[in-house]
């Protein structure tokens, strides 16, 4: 019981101190989970990140679930993610209530026009970083472009794109197995 509470509050703290989620959470995890609590090592957390990036869902939830599982099995894997999302949940509820109250003032509306543009600038940077990390060859560029066009131009449901890409990946894997030294499919 004590560990479960510690687990919840440690991750609550990590959630409260990180902005932007995901990778920006790492320094806080290092301090709280590795240095202070000694629950796991840096290498283990990096492994959890790697797995989290290739499974569906929020990465912060993945990483905290894995650490929680390590300590307290299933219950830990539920409690730790709840801890990490709690502060954001509370603060977002407050923000949502306040923003709905003031949304009709002209000054607030002008502010939000500017804010949207700022968010675009921030997200442009993230998109460039993500593309740099996940597109390493022509084939992957084609997959990314196809996903972009199918959703941005034709308005398809993104889930189909993910499923389609999964099938493509498996099919390509098969092809590579068939041919010992295929051309045009460099390993990243």
């Amino acid at each position: 019981m004590k560990t479960l509470l510690q687990l919840y509050f440690s991750f609550f703290k990590v959630g409260l101190m990180t902005f932007g989620g995901g990778l920006s959470m790492f320094p806080m995890l290092e301090r709280e989970v590795i240095d202070r609590r000694k629950w796991c090592t840096k290498e283990e957390i990096l492994d959890y990140y790697a797995v989290g990036q290739c499974t569906p869902g929020i990465i912060a939830v993945d990483v905290s679930a894995f650490i929680g599982y390590r300590l307290k099995k299933t219950l830990g894997a539920v409690i730790a993610p709840l801890g990490v999302i709690s502060p954001g949940f509370g603060i977002m509820l407050l923000l949502a209530t306040v923003l709905q109250q003031v949304a009709d003032y002209p000054a607030v509306q002008s502010a939000f026009v500017g804010v949207r543009v700022a968010v675009c600038a921030l997200i442009t940077v993230s998109v460039v970083n993500i593309l740099r990390e996940s597109v390493r060859n022509l084939w992957q560029l084609a997959v990314a472009l196809l996903a972009f066009v199918v959703v941005a131009v034709f308005g398809a449901n993104p889930a189909w794109v993910v499923l389609g890409a999964a099938l493509l990946g498996l099919a390509q894997g098969r092809l590579q197995k068939g041919k010992p030294a295929p051309e045009g499919s460099h390993r990243p």
């Binding site: 949207r116 597109v135 941005a152 999964a166």
Partner: peptide
């Protein structure tokens, strides 16, 4: 097979996020 799967899903997911960003740009 996970490695192979991810080699296709990662760029697709990046393309999806780019499409979302494009639509945000259009709105803004």
């Amino acid at each position: 097979w996970v490695e192979k799967l991810m080699r296709a899903i990662r760029p697709a997911s990046a393309g999806l996020i780019a499409a979302a960003a494009f639509s945000l740009l259009r709105i803004s």
